[in-house]
Design a protein around this nucleic acid. Structure first.
Length: 482
RNA sequence: GCCCAGUUCGUCUAGUGGCCUAGGACACCGCCCUCUCACGGCGGCGACACGGGUUCGACUCCCGUACUGGGUGCCA
């Protein structure tokens, strides 16, 4: 059996979006599961849409997420070059060969003329199809036009009748009538190949065993098989993957402002969570396991679990998975991720130990940290009605009664640390015959100024320190008239 | 328009003719725990696109319709 070889073949036209990353992931998983090779090829034949630096984004993202390629532009390999613009001569040679074999022909019709006819056909509600006009040109006529310097493309010569088909490992057999197929351009006037030609030549020459790509190629693949037949080449296996959608109608795309991989990282998502989530978008392991490391994904991956229908990207579920990963982080790793956000929030130099402890179990995305701790940096204005809480059996009147006593108690503490504060307050509650909630609720409100806080009164007192705690208490009591 | 696909809770999905009064996860709601929130525990809401067949029996097979996606480029 020949070695499994898959490839990820992105166009360097911008940032790597989530859908592209998922395609790369599946191609990687499929190859690695079977001990095969994963190849990276850059498809840059469209010079118009090329974006500077886009290749680096691709390299960096794949490396970061652990999708390490065995062959590619930067690491080389036995089937290079791996950048299509560096393979010009190869395509030219094979195109000439295909012309010889009758599978393609030179065409001198101008783009303008064809565009006009296409528009005309469209206006009439018809499908435009090239009429094979140049197929009838004689050798002499062709030579004459070339010598005259007329621009020329090479078109695929599709049979006018019969059927073309292929077997897809996910979708099964796909068959189309050749009559519905057009004689597409294989080599453009600029000498570069179109995707239609380059992908076939490259996949064959690079010995790709399984062509994995999006379903947008599902209906044109029969046509590509005609090319393989024209050359007498062995066809690869095909695996078409359904797209990731933004909603029912739109595909996920950077153009529509959908987040790219980099955007998610910057917002404080963990790469492990992103990879895990997109793996599950359109694939299921056949078990109820939901958390997978990349290694576990390789182990569990199978085409059986691939879905045929498009999957809608759900940021809420991604966030949940991210939360799971953050909670499972080693404390030291959590600190490393959180530190920049603490600093951004204005908490540089605070007691990171307490911050980690109250925040790690509550952080879904790191970018939430500044909002969660804003009350520590600046005391929010609040209304006395916040002292009212049914479950804690507390109201403004009770707050007014207890707060001064608690203030006095805290003022008298010899040491200001969590244990000391905790013990003193618990003792106070016991002495007063009060529920813990009655003592702690008003205190927390008085020093935090908001109903919901990460952590409780004791942690917050410890974080704020004695001076700031007492200052806030004083201020809140004054507002209460206590 | 024509061609190729797809269609199970709001979302991701399980389901390959009887195991389905359709299972899980996220979200949502309720209760418990609790100084708030979160965590955790328990419970709830919620789907086979529609219509015909085939069959003793259909979410599962066939046909049609609807809807969605893709293609119909000297884009990929």
């Amino acid at each position: 059996m020949t070695k499994v070889r898959t490839r990820f073949a992105p166009s360097p036209t911008g940032y790597l979006h989530i859908g592209g990353l998922r395609s790369a992931l599946y191609a990687y998983l499929f190859a690695k599961k079977q001990g095969g090779d994963f190849i990276l090829r850059i498809e840059d034949t469209d010079q118009q849409r090329h974006v500077e630096g886009a290749e680096d984004v691709i390299y960096n993202t794949l490396r970061e997420t652990g999708l390490i390629w065995d062959e590619g532009p930067d690491v080389g390999g036995a089937y290079g070059p791996y950048v299509q613009t560096e393979r010009r001569a190869i395509y030219q040679k094979y195109a000439d060969e295909l012309v010889e074999r009758g599978g393609a022909y030179r065409c001198f019709c101008t783009k303008e003329e064809l565009d006009r006819r296409r528009a005309e056909a469209e206006a009439k509600g018809e499908t435009f199809k090239y009429d094979k006009h140049c197929l009838g040109l004689s050798e002499a006529e062709i030579r004459e036009k070339i010598e005259a310097g007329l621009p020329c493309v090479i078109r695929q010569n599709v049979p006018e009748s019969g059927q073309a088909s292929f077997d897809d490992l996910i979708f099964g057999q796909i068959t189309v009538d050749c009559a519905t197929l057009d004689d597409n351009v294989l080599i453009k006037a600029d000498g570069l190949p179109t995707y239609n030609f380059a992908n076939v030549v490259d996949d064959h020459l690079m010995a790709i065993s399984h062509v994995m790509r999006g379903t947008e190629y599902l209906s044109s693949t029969p046509k590509y098989n005609l090319l393989y037949e024209g050359f007498g080449w062995e066809k690869p296996q095909y695996i078409h993957m359904s797209p990731v959608m933004r909603d029912e109608k739109r595909k996920l795309s950077k153009r529509d402002g959908d987040a790219s991989y980099d955007d998610f990282i910057q917002k404080g998502y963990l790469k492990e969570a992103i990879v895990n989530y997109i793996a599950l978008l359109g694939w299921n392991p056949g078990t109820e396991q939901e958390k997978f490391s990349l290694e576990e994904l390789v182990e569990a991956f199978s085409l059986e679990g691939m879905s045929k229908s498009p999957a809608i990207f759900d940021p809420v579920k991604l966030t949940w998975l991210n939360f799971e990963y953050i909670r499972a982080l080693d404390p030291a790793d959590y600190r490393a991720y959180a530190l920049p956000w603490y600093e951004k929030a204005g908490l540089a130099g605070w007691d990171y130990g307490i911050l980690d402890r109250i925040l790690q179990p509550r952080t879904e995305i790191f970018s939430q940290i500044p909002d969660m701790v804003a009350f520590l940096v600046a005391m929010p204005a609040f209304d006395a009605s916040l002292y009212a809480n049914k479950k804690s059996k507390c109201d403004p009147a009770l707050a007014k009664e207890l707060l001064p006593q608690e203030m006095a108690l805290l003022e008298g503490l010899p040491d200001w640390n969590e244990t000391a504060i905790h013990d003193a307050l618990m003792q106070f509650a016991a002495d007063q015959g009060r529920k813990n909630g009655q003592v702690l609720w008003p205190l927390r409100i008085a020093i935090a100024g908001q109903a919901v806080t990460p952590g409780g009164a004791i942690e917050i007192l410890a974080l704020l320190g004695r001076d700031e705690s007492l200052r806030r208490l004083q201020e809140s009591m004054a507002a209460l008239g206590a």
